[in-house]
Simulated scan of single mutants.
Amino acid sequence: MRHAQAGWIAGAAAALLVAVGGITYAVAEDGGSDTGAPSADSADAGFARDMAVHHQQAVEMSYIVRDRTDDEEVRRLAYDIAQTQANQRGMLLGWLDLWELPKVSAAPMDWMGMGGMVSGEDGALMPGMATDTELDRLGRLNGRQAEVFYLQLMTDHHRGGMHMAEGCADRCTVEVEKRLARGMVEGQQSEIRLMADMLKERGAKARS
């Protein structure tokens, strides 16, 4: 199991490096911008910071469930989510580097006018994020129970992520970032449908 996990992590790291390598080209292609880099309080910067944190939790949950079940369908989904979101997270952090902006948000979701609406209680800093208590529970479950809880948590996570990505598609000004956000919405919609079918196969359904 440890050897397999090491290979999985190495694959995710390789994908991340490829993504980061393409960042400079993508941003330059976006027009090099007469207006310069986005400001620290812009939607572009806010989305990049917050979605990087949001994605990191999805990667974490996917690594957890991979070690809690032998079900190949769930393990394959977890691998795909971890790869995709680690890749996208690398792009978001790379843009913040290029823009010379902070990577940590003092007020999560402020860029969407939701700064006071997300309490951050028990580690859930943004819409759809699992709490620390829920992550701890996922790490204690095994087999079918772990699969169902992961699929429920990730469905909530994707719904929250889609809400944020739609916000960027509406508010962001850097075209390459808007394209990434729109792609996130499409990809996560597809995965939500897949997870609904997987939950049904296991005699369960999404939490809301």
Rank of each mutant, 00 (worst) to 15 (best):
H55P: 04
A45Y: 15
R66W: 14
A40M: 10
D41F: 03
V53M: 07
G46S: 07
V27P: 03
A45K: 04
S42Y: 14
A40H: 08
T69P: 04
H54W: 00
D30V: 05
T69R: 09
M61I: 14
V65H: 03
G31I: 11
P38M: 07
S62D: 09
V65K: 05
M51T: 07
A43P: 06
D34N: 09
D71Q: 04
G36C: 08
S39H: 01
D34L: 13
V65D: 10
M51D: 09
A28F: 01
F47K: 06
E73I: 12
G36D: 00
E29V: 03
A28N: 15
E29K: 02
G46E: 03
A45R: 10
D71V: 03
I64H: 10
V74P: 00
D50Q: 09
I64F: 00
G36Y: 08
Q57D: 07
A28K: 07
V27M: 11
S33M: 03
A40Q: 01
S42P: 14
A43N: 06
D30F: 08
V74C: 06
D70E: 11
S39N: 02
V53A: 14
E29M: 05
V53G: 11
A52W: 06
P38Q: 12
A37Y: 13
V27Q: 03
S62L: 05
S33Y: 08
E72M: 15
Q56E: 15
A37G: 13
H55C: 01
D30Q: 14
V65G: 09
A37C: 04
A58E: 14
E60C: 10
S62H: 12
M61H: 03
E29F: 12
F47I: 10
Q57H: 08
S62F: 05
D30H: 08
